[in-house]
Amino acid sequence: MRTSEVTALPVVTLAGDDVAQVKDIAFSGDGGAVAGFTLAGRGLFSGPLKTGLLWSKVVGLGPDAVMITDESALDPVDDVRGAAASADGSGSGGNVLGDQVLTDGGTDLGRVVDVIVQFDNGSSACDVVGYEIEASEHLAAKVSNASNGTRLLVPLPDTLAVSGEHLMVPASAEGFVSGDLAGFGAAVSAFRAQLGTPGEGV
């Protein structure tokens, strides 16, 4: 699912109470997984909370809510920020929106507008599997029904280099660009299999 769809989702306990809503998503230092969420209070005028939610405490993430066992699953927001910072202090903290996606061959594929995450119930991590980009002219020319600025999905390898400005993907990622989320999981698996990294089933 797109991370923009996660923002503002209610955080609901298994007892049925909405204790917070997602304010922002914190990615782990290498940008490869969701570390947790910062939270805001429920309601139009409530501000940010001092508590956050680590991914390890999430019971379920769906289109309509983030589920937790109870309120004790919430931790101080600094713990979430700590989990998001990479061990050596480098990395962009996962803020990739607006970054230019470059292949290792030096071709511009477009700019990141959204992050696609995937997690299977039972797996431990919420993996970042791709980015939604506004296609560059070069990429649009290669994809049918696409023009400059069309939103396309680019699969990611398990790990990749991210700076504040650029995001490097293997040139072969171009071949696995997909137009909609429905077939994207398969494209990610195929792409990762081709790279020789363990892919994830959908």
């Binding site: 609901v12 306990t13 298994l14 007892a15 049925g16 109470d17 909405d18 379920g60 589920m67 119930n121």
Partner: peptide, 13 residues
């Protein structure tokens, strides 16, 4: 049925 709260009725998947 798992719980009934202020926001929702929660059920097991």
């Amino acid at each position: 049925l798992l719980g009934v709260g202020s926001y929702a009725v929660v059920v097991r998947t």
